[in-house]
Design a protein around this nucleic acid. Structure first.
Length: 606
RNA sequence: GGUCCGGUAGCUCAGUUGGAUUAGAGCAACAGCCUUCUAAGCUGUGGGUCAAGGGUUCGAAUCCCUUCCGGAUCACCA
């Protein structure tokens, strides 16, 4: 039983004995004592004053006395301020707690067993016509972190990715490549496949725009008003017509178009793989829209037969969700082709065939909140048991100082460029340091990679996911303050201490003696360490990687203050020295576990 | 217009199931600290009507209502 649990139990027993009040555990509010008061833990007595019919101060005194008498091995002394009962916990329980933390490499994680629920997490979901940008980075980092957090809470996790590999946007790139590409390949140009295809997508758009401008001028000369002319030009431009023709050919399985499509998609996948690898992101199962986009139709027809949906005169199929307070939603076009929603139903069907899913989490931007509200209802109606409480992990946009990212206006931050720049910055920022640490070039580059990516990941994950966030590329990302590198740096310093302790032949025993005299600062650190478990649980409930970030930062900051106030290796008292080293060890392990959940690697030196 | 989500220091953000006369970090500014376990660090100063108003109660940044501002969404686009 933990210290907290023992106190809570004792308080429950206390109010029953003193005031004949049955208090459940949630009524006993136990919190960390504020720094300006003496004590470790504080009991809030307000919930009991009514039953006691006494002043909060009186209740605090009585309860404090009761605890001191009945829980003497834990509560050393107490004091009462207003309605708050501050408890000073004796040393031995803290040492026991530290021993417990240090005895478990997987501290804070729940084991996954055969009977654990299976949670599928979908994230990334790229289009194959352009490279990944900063928005995708947020998606990928959130998705991957979430997968680890959910797993750390004792669930089986399947990470999945649905690749949008078909549609008009792909045809645009293909057409541009045919027209102006001269057979350029990733090998011949030295470009990454996804960037190569992205370039042709942009090229298409440039030519298309030029055609539109010219055409709309022509229409206006013929007497059309400006808006109508623009609209018509968009549809009548030869390039878009050609792209549409290509899409039709693709749907009809035209051998030539399909071969080109496959070839170009392969280039893109090779490019994505590199980006994913650099980001440290992976998937257990990848679905392709070209395989799933027809699947949904069948399910929709099934629902139509069951009377869940209805057909309009023109042959289109709709779901009436006005009963749920939503609108009517199109599921099949009048020509029988599927829409976005139909595809997601189809993908759900395939996934459920492949895995016994208990819970589904979709990591998708908040612009699709409505879509997932509808999808949840539809999947539920269609009989998917996880449909009703599917989770749309909805995250906000990444904005730039001058507004949103727009790929056509060239105001995107490319994922590959960004990661490379971060790593380079980290390398430059630490060149002097690496010399003094006597690192060779390889190690220096490896450290820079961990630090640069750590900075980027932490920067993105520390912000509450559902909020829009601002990214300023010029100012780039700081390596000081509340950042990934700050935490990594602290870790590296602890590792350095541990190495030196080893050189000096100091052994840290598995289990410390409980008769060490320890200071308040030290107990505060142990308390903080012990909160890791709660932080992981909470993150699993809220789906909040940012909660883990905050925890890691607070722990690290606290350790840094400790580090400057205390000597560790220079400590004269051998027992205290060993105790502090043991504390260092625990901090390092917990920080590494926490940052590991975020996908951030910890360098042993930096 | 309907629905959903945001609004906390000059800037970027925290703020646990409502808790402590003083709402926290980081950046930026200013002042200190490297003969001492890694200064990517530590200490201090300045900076706030928690968008506004009302309500609930021992107690509100947090819960409820109204208003204001910002964003998203409401397609036979994906």
């Amino acid at each position: 039983m933990t210290i907290e649990e023992r106190i809570v139990n004792a308080v429950q027993a206390g109010v029953t004995a003193l005031y004949s009040m049955e208090a459940n555990a949630s009524q006993v509010q136990l919190q960390k004592t504020k720094a300006e008061f003496e004590g470790h833990l504080t009991v809030v007595v307000f919930p009991f004053v009514k039953a006691a019919r006494k002043s909060p101060e009186q209740v605090g005194e009585e309860l404090g006395k009761y605890l001191a008498e009945n829980l003497g091995d834990v509560v050393e002394k107490y004091n009462v301020v207003k309605g708050f009962l501050n408890l000073v916990v004796s040393d031995a329980p803290w040492v026991e707690l530290l021993n417990k933390i240090n005895s478990d490499e997987q501290f804070g994680f729940k084991p996954v067993t055969a009977s654990s629920p299976l949670v599928m997490i979908e994230y990334s979901s790229p289009n194959t016509n352009k490279p990944l940008h900063l928005g995708h980075v947020r998606n990928n980092l959130l998705g991957a972190a979430l997968a680890r957090i959910v797993e750390a809470n004792g669930n089986k996790v399947v990470k999945t990715n649905i690749v949008n590999d078909r549609g008009i946007h792909i045809c645009k790139s293909m057409l541009a490549w045919l027209k102006w590409g001269n057979g350029e390949t990733p090998e011949s140009s030295g470009k990454k496949g996804d960037h190569l295809i992205g370039d042709y997508y942009v090229l298409f758009d440039k030519h298309y725009k030029a055609e539109c401008d010219e055409l709309s001028k022509q229409y206006m000369a013929e007497g059309m008003d400006a808006d109508a002319a623009k609209e018509k030009a968009k549809q009548e431009a030869p390039l878009i017509k050609e792209a549409h023709a290509m899409l039709v050919k693709w749907e009809k399985n035209d051998a030539e178009v399909r071969a080109l499509w496959r070839k170009m998609n392969e280039w893109v996948y090779a490019g994505f793989d590199e980006t994913y690898k650099m980001m440290g992101v992976s998937f257990d199962k990848i679905y392709y829209e070209s395989d799933t986009y027809l699947e949904g139709k069948e399910k929709v027809m099934e629902g139509l037969e069951k009377g869940l949906f209805y057909k309009r005169e023109d042959g289109s199929v709709w779901a009436d969700l006005t009963g749920e307070g939503l609108d009517e939603k199109l599921l099949l076009r009048s020509d029988g082709t599927s829409v976005y929603m139909t595809q997601d139903i189809g993908t759900a069907k395939l996934r459920f065939q492949d895995f016994p899913i208990d819970k589904m989490i979709y990591v998708v931007g908040n612009e699709q909140n409505y879509h997932f509200q509808v999808l949840s209802i539809l999947l539920d109606k269609l009989g998917f048991k996880w449909g009703k409480d599917l989770v749309h992990f909805s995250y906000g946009m990444v904005e730039l100082p001058n507004g949103k990212m727009k790929s056509r206006e060239g105001t995107v931050v490319d994922a590959d460029d960004l990661m490379a720049a971060m790593i380079e910055d980290a390398y430059k920022a630490s060149e002097d340091k690496m010399k003094t640490l006597d690192m060779d070039e390889d190690e220096a580059r490896e450290v820079a990679r961990k630090v640069g990516l750590g900075a980027l990941k932490y920067f993105i994950l520390k912000v509450d996911a559902r909020k829009n966030m601002l990214f300023n590329p010029e100012e780039s990302i700081d390596f000081n303050g509340n950042t990934g590198p700050f935490i990594q740096y602290t870790y590296a310093r602890i590792q350095s201490i541990m190495r030196k302790a080893k050189e000096q032949g100091i052994n840290i025993p598995e289990s410390l003696n409980t008769d060490v005299k320890i200071s308040t600062k030290e107990t505060e650190l142990i308390q903080k360490l012990n909160q890791f478990e709660a932080a992981v649980r909470q993150a699993g409930i809220d789906y909040s990687p940012s909660g883990i970030c905050n925890y890691c930062y607070e722990l690290t900051k606290q350790f840094n203050q400790f580090y400057h106030d205390f000597t560790i290796l220079g400590e004269q008292n051998e027992a205290v020295k060993v105790f502090r080293l043991s504390l260092c060890k625990a901090v390092a392990m917990v920080v590494k576990n926490g940052m590991g959940l975020l996908g951030i690697e910890m360098p042993e030196r930096m």
